[in-house]
Design a protein around this nucleic acid. Structure first.
Lengths: 195, 195
DNA sequence: CGTGAACTAGAACGTAGTGTCTAATTCAAG
DNA sequence: CTTGAATTAGACACTACGTTCTAGTTCACG
């Protein structure tokens, strides 16, 4: 027997929760607020996600998956690998100096939770590992294109790029001055047109 | 009339509170725990610091002042400016990959609080501004020593160094792999001996 | 000595948190 | 229809928090 149909959309609810956690962290947001944003009632919430931490874990996992697939799509897109990396960095720099100061949910989470939750930590570390691999692949493609010296270590370059991306994420919460972001950008991947 | 002498030391209590906030953030630590670490009773706590946020504000201010004066001492110390900057960065890199994964209290605070508290934000931004000035001065000294090209923009270099220092602070909460830290180090201030 | 200001100890208060429970509602299937 | 499984609505329990209040204690000063 089928019961009453759901009034909420689980996928939409998860996305909404992710956005809230992203903006305001874990501790600072209460279940009441989550229910409002997710458009569901208490019982359905606990039936569907177990508890607040369970929801958070799913939200972070979703964030990580979207971050990885988003980067993959971007780096697999048309154009030279070097340009893709450049636009990646400049976009992160722009976000870090703009009004959207939410930063990166994964970094925010590690800063807030520290090493208090192994499962959460594993999700974040897994994400970073996958991001590092994608970035290194792109650097290798750029080497193949002749845009990066072929004797350079692609993993080293990828690490610097990823560090910069994550750094922009973390520091966007302090809304760093635009000039600092630009200086970092110039140092990490100098624009050949201005050099 | 002088009353009963204090059993606690205000300075020591503030330092203890700073350490606790540094390790575990603001929301996650309760007043009960603070009292234990600070070695004082409830009433004295509220008489002395007003409330939890008041204590936190003083702790962050203290942290910021110590960070600035610490950097100043370090950069005013003996030796070439370029070596001081190099050792600064490598120490931060070491901390970011080591067991001490507390990061930087100021960055942690901005990540946790976002733009929720203007006074806290002002303290952090003030600290960063002062750190940037000190760093730029050191870069200028390095230029004067001939260790940095004199046609380079010292503010740009200082921004990159500061970004890296703060980035190490933020990302030390994720305990980034040692190799990544080393790659960043090599990219920001290449060691002339290995180049 | 006392006396009283300052501090200590810890009970008590109000509020807000997460998570559970009961009852009412809805709608596909029988 | 009737039935009953699933969802909804919201009251409820319980704990934890920050803060205040009340008593009791200590010790420099008069």
């Amino acid at each position: 027997m089928a019961g009453r149909p759901r009034q909420f959309d689980e996928e939409h609810a998860l996305q909404a929760a992710m956005q809230v956690f992203w903006s305001r962290g874990y501790e600072a947001v209460g279940v009441r607020e989550l229910l409002g944003e997710m458009g569901m009632c208490r019982q359905s919430f606990y039936d569907t996600f177990g508890d607040k931490r369970g929801l958070f874990l799913r939200a972070v996992r979703r964030y990580a998956d979207e971050a990885v697939s988003g980067l993959q799509q971007r780096l697999d897109g048309p154009g030279r690998a070097i340009d893709q990396l450049r636009s990646l960095l400049s976009e992160k720099a722009k976000k870090a100096t703009g009004a959207d100061c939410r930063g990166c949910l994964a970094v925010n989470t590690m800063v807030e939770w520290g090493d208090a939750d192994d499962e959460v930590e594993a999700v974040v570390r897994g994400m970073i590992k996958r991001l590092a691999k994608l970035t290194a692949d792109a650097v290798r493609r750029a080497q193949h294109d002749g845009d990066v010296p072929s004797d350079a270590d692609p993993n080293a370059i990828a690490d610097v790029i990823l560090f910069t991306v994550l750094g922009f994420g973390a520091l966007s919460r302090l809304r760093i001055p635009r000039s600092m972001a630009q200086h970092v950008l110039d140092a990490v991947l100098p624009d050949p047109k201005t050099a």
